[in-house]
Computed example of a mutant assay.
Amino acid sequence: MPTATVYTWIYRGWVTARHDPDGKNWIITADATEIQRLRERRARPPGYHTRARWTEPDEHAEPSQEETQT
Rank of each mutant, 00 (worst) to 15 (best):
A30K: 00
D22F: 09
A17I: 02
Y11C: 05
V15F: 05
R18L: 06
T55A: 04
W54Y: 10
Y7I: 10
A17Q: 06
W26V: 02
T8N: 14
Q69G: 14
A61K: 10
I27F: 04
P46M: 03
Q69N: 15
Y7M: 08
N25V: 00
P57T: 05
T68Q: 14
P46A: 07
Q65C: 10
Y7Q: 05
T68S: 13
E59K: 13
E34T: 08
V6M: 09
E66I: 12
D20M: 07
R18T: 14
H19Y: 11
D31V: 07
T5H: 03
I10M: 07
P63V: 07
W14Q: 09
W9C: 01
I28N: 01
P45D: 06
G47R: 04
M1V: 12
W26T: 05
P45E: 07
D22H: 13
E67R: 15
R44L: 15
T55M: 05
T33Q: 11
Y48R: 02
I27K: 00
D58L: 08
I35V: 15
Q69A: 15
T3Q: 09
M1D: 12
G13N: 02
Q36P: 00
G23T: 07
R51D: 11
P45K: 08
S64K: 12
T5Y: 06
R53M: 05
S64W: 13
H60Q: 10
E56G: 02
T50K: 04
E62F: 12
P21C: 06
G47F: 09
N25Y: 01
H19T: 05
E59Q: 12
G47A: 09
L38S: 00
I28Q: 01
I28R: 02
T70M: 13
A61R: 12
A43C: 03
E40H: 07
R12I: 00
L38Y: 04
P57K: 04
A52Q: 11
L38R: 01
T3G: 03
T8Q: 10
I10F: 04
Q65G: 12
R18F: 10
K24H: 11
P57R: 10
H19N: 04
R12L: 11
Q65L: 15
R44S: 06
T33F: 06
T68F: 02
W54N: 09
E62K: 14
T70Q: 15
A30H: 03
H60V: 01
R53W: 04
Q69L: 15
W54E: 11
E40D: 09
E66V: 13
D20Q: 09
R12S: 12
Y48C: 04
H19G: 02
P45W: 02
T68P: 01
P21F: 02
E56H: 11
A52C: 08
Y48I: 00
T70G: 14
R12C: 05
D58Q: 09
W26R: 11
T55R: 13
R44K: 13
R51I: 01
R37P: 03
P21T: 08
P63S: 06
D22Y: 09
P57N: 01
I27H: 03
Y11H: 13
D20L: 09
W14I: 04
W14S: 03
T33A: 13
R39K: 10
R53E: 07
G47T: 06
P21H: 08
K24M: 07
G23N: 12
T55I: 07
T50Y: 01
Q65E: 15
T29V: 10
T8H: 08
T33S: 08
Y11R: 14
R37E: 06
R42A: 14
G47H: 03
A32M: 06
T33K: 15
W14G: 00
D31G: 15
T70R: 15
